[in-house]
Design a protein around this nucleic acid. Structure first.
Lengths: 185, 185
DNA sequence: AGCAGTAGTTCAGTCACTGAACCAGACATG
DNA sequence: CATGTCTGGTTCAGTGACTGAACTACTGCT
């Protein structure tokens, strides 16, 4: 967003935060990261974001410590949320919740559950069964009542995202597996 | 933000929400609205936003039902949050809270209290005294421990914002009062 | 060598934002 | 009525950001 970098109001943490996550695409990238997307190509496929923009956003998110970039076992590159990045979960939850409330008459497009006991989470992220605030890695994501199934052409990454699974759990798109890649022959 | 208007992922309420509040400046305008700013000129002065951009953002926020535009008693124009706009408070709180956590080592730049009983609000917006989730109009805003006072040149609108007061309470910048404007002679 | 997959870079075209100047209506004053 | 001020805008040239498509570079397989 780069409001002129010398914020008009340096007493506003909102402006400071928007410097980091307020640019176009940035929060969608972070959302995908929560949903398990880790690879450059998967972000491109899932978001249809121009590659140059993705490069730039990933770079600045890494610089800000929201993501880490690391080489994975198979020689590829992975982008993962740091603790600082995971701390953005309440932001995403609030944004999604507002959108569900005002733009999804049939109900939330995605539901979140406490994976340990199956309890639904309220919009403050609390488990309605056990009452605790559920840590991000224990949240299970699944299609909600307002979910609209897409055409049958869904790509691998999308359908992985739309299947019940825990947040942060890496999406393993069908990709040559380095160790045992011969299992299909 | 206008992601190509046909969202890559129409099942994401996040994308839908960002269509409405994701553009540059928009959330800062809404923050100011929560803090009591209502007039075109005050937004310009407080945010140092280009007037053309402000015009465009106000127009689309009104169109989306986040703000209402109405003529006030003295013939001026006022922009006010609707209920839909007030529902964005958790979003702002989450963004500010994240910024405070990671970019304000001396503590939150602004503190929020339950004006009825003086209790501090936690980052979920609950009063630590009475335990209730405090409705927006009952929240009192005041400088927090991380607040950095500005130079003495602070304009009227800023100093009003930085003085303890309730959210949504209109800022009355020193402005010719239609009835008795002669008080300075 | 040839091929495919991944993670980028480059580049022309378009669009949005910036900052400063200008405009118009309402009201007041002389 | 002419003048000035306040407010809420609009206009416009210059700059920067985003878009989409093509291209590059590195890796590993066959």
């Amino acid at each position: 967003m780069t409001l002129p970098s010398t914020y008009a109001d340096r007493n506003c943490s909102l402006a400071r935060t928007l410097e980091v996550v307020g640019e176009r695409w940035t929060l969608l990238i972070i959302r995908d990261a929560f949903f398990g997307v880790r690879r450059f190509g998967d972000f491109v496929a899932q978001l249809k974001i121009p590659r140059a923009v993705l490069t730039s956003r990933l770079k600045s998110l890494v610089q800000e410590g929201v993501l880490v970039r690391e080489d994975d076992a198979s020689g590829g590159v992975e982008y993962r949320l740091t603790a600082k990045g995971e701390a953005l979960w309440p932001v995403l939850r609030a944004l999604m919740s507002w959108g569900d409330t005002f733009y999804s008459p049939a109900g939330a497009k995605r539901a979140f559950r406490h994976d340990e006991d199956g309890g639904l989470l309220d919009h403050e992220g609390r488990c309605q069964d056990c009452g605790s605030t559920v840590p991000v890695p224990q949240i299970r994501l699944e299609p909600g009542p307002g979910f609209e199934p897409e055409g049958p052409e869904g790509d691998a990454v999308s359908s992985a995202i739309n299947t019940p699974r825990r947040l942060l759990q890496p999406i393993t798109a069908p990709r040559p597996i380095p160790a045992g890649r011969g299992e299909l022959s």
